[in-house]
């Protein structure tokens, strides 16, 4: 089932084309939207929220047309903007309750949901204090809470890890993963860092200058390659020579050796060679693509 779909979506501003003939579909689960700054990510989200008209092309969110059913879409989706968007003089609880009511929840339901959601994002006692005194990490949690408070079917997260320290980043990513799996809410999360999305997404869409570079499942991006990485303490060169002698294809990669796997015999050959040369084998690892490599390849073609 498609959570959202665009067809030839184009958005032209007076001086720049933000989206150029973008045709893409997104299923349930966590989907990453990757692109450099200015690639058109935020513009796409605004169009999908029905806040910005497209120049041409169509887009549907939860099977509702963005140009005519914007109000219905906004009832069912949550949005966490990239920029600061919190008033400093109210508490997180008050703010999230208010935002729940703005989404159409009755007063008591709004209170219950706000308390629930703030607990889920990990704000405890501090939620009664004014937001002005919060750290960046806590503010990001409040921003996430207001996007979740009305229990949306789909949530747009625009650069949610921006400005976070490594630990805050890990916690935010884990939370996003939980939203997509345990909470059962589909997520479209943007980032300019591929490594982050690799960890939490089921599907990744790469855009550049408003054009689609690639859209595929994360498994396709990071599928196993037919190489095995070998690391030894010292004696990399004799090992390479020995393996070549044994008929294996070897290519040095810094201090590591990449050995092409031709069959189970390859592993035996590596083991035997290491034993024969009396080397200390540190690592033997199945090679995997990283989506960054894919992105580099794709970008090189354009």
């Amino acid at each position: 089932m498609h959570i959202l779909a665009t067809e030839g979506l184009t958005k032209r501003f007076p001086t720049v084309t933000a989206l150029d003939q973008l045709t893409v579909t997104v299923g349930t689960g966590v989907t990453g939207l990757v692109g450099a700054n200015g690639a058109g990510k935020s513009t796409l989200i605004k169009i999908l929220l029905g806040l910005l008209p497209a120049s041409s092309g169509t887009a549907r969110v939860l099977d509702l047309d963005v140009s005519t059913r914007g109000a219905d879409i906004r009832r069912l989706v949550g949005y966490m903007p990239e920029h600061e968007c919190l008033p400093p003089d109210v508490s997180a609880t008050e703010f999230v309750v208010h935002m729940a009511r703005m989404s159409g929840l009755p007063r008591t339901a709004a209170r219950e949901r706000a308390a629930d959601v703030l607990r889920h994002v990990g704000l405890a006692e501090e939620r009664y204090r004014p937001i002005g005194g919060y750290s960046t990490g806590m503010k990001q949690r409040v921003k996430l809470a207001q996007a979740l408070v009305h229990d949306p079917k789909l949530i747009f997260l625009d650069e949610p890890t921006n400005g976070l320290d490594p630990r805050g980043r890990d916690e935010m990513l884990a939370l996003i993963r939980r939203i997509g799996t345990e909470f059962g809410i589909s997520v479209l999360v943007t980032s300019h860092l591929l490594g982050e999305l690799e960890r939490i997404c089921d599907h990744v869409i790469v855009i550049d200058a408003g054009r689609l570079l690639r859209s595929s499942a994360i498994t396709e991006f990071t599928q196993a390659t037919r190489t095995v990485t070998v690391e030894v303490d010292e004696g990399t060169e004799p090992l390479a020579a020995r393996l070549t002698e044994l008929g294996q294809k070897v290519s040095p990669h810094g201090r590591l050796l990449l050995v092409e796997v031709s069959g189970p015999g390859t592993y035996d050959a590596i083991r035997d060679a290491a034993v024969d040369l009396d080397l200390c084998l540190i690592r033997l690892e199945q090679g995997r693509h990283r989506i960054e490599d894919v992105f580099r390849e794709e970008a090189a073609h354009v």
């Binding site: 703005m102 989404s103 009755p106 629930d116 889920h120 990990g122 345990e182 909470f183």
Partner: peptide, 20 residues
């Protein structure tokens, strides 16, 4: 440990723009 509570969905009424 405080994350570790199940997520509950909301299936109560969703009032319109007028209410908001």
């Amino acid at each position: 440990e405080i994350y570790d509570i199940g997520y509950r969905h909301y299936d109560g009424p969703r009032l319109g723009g007028g209410h908001a």
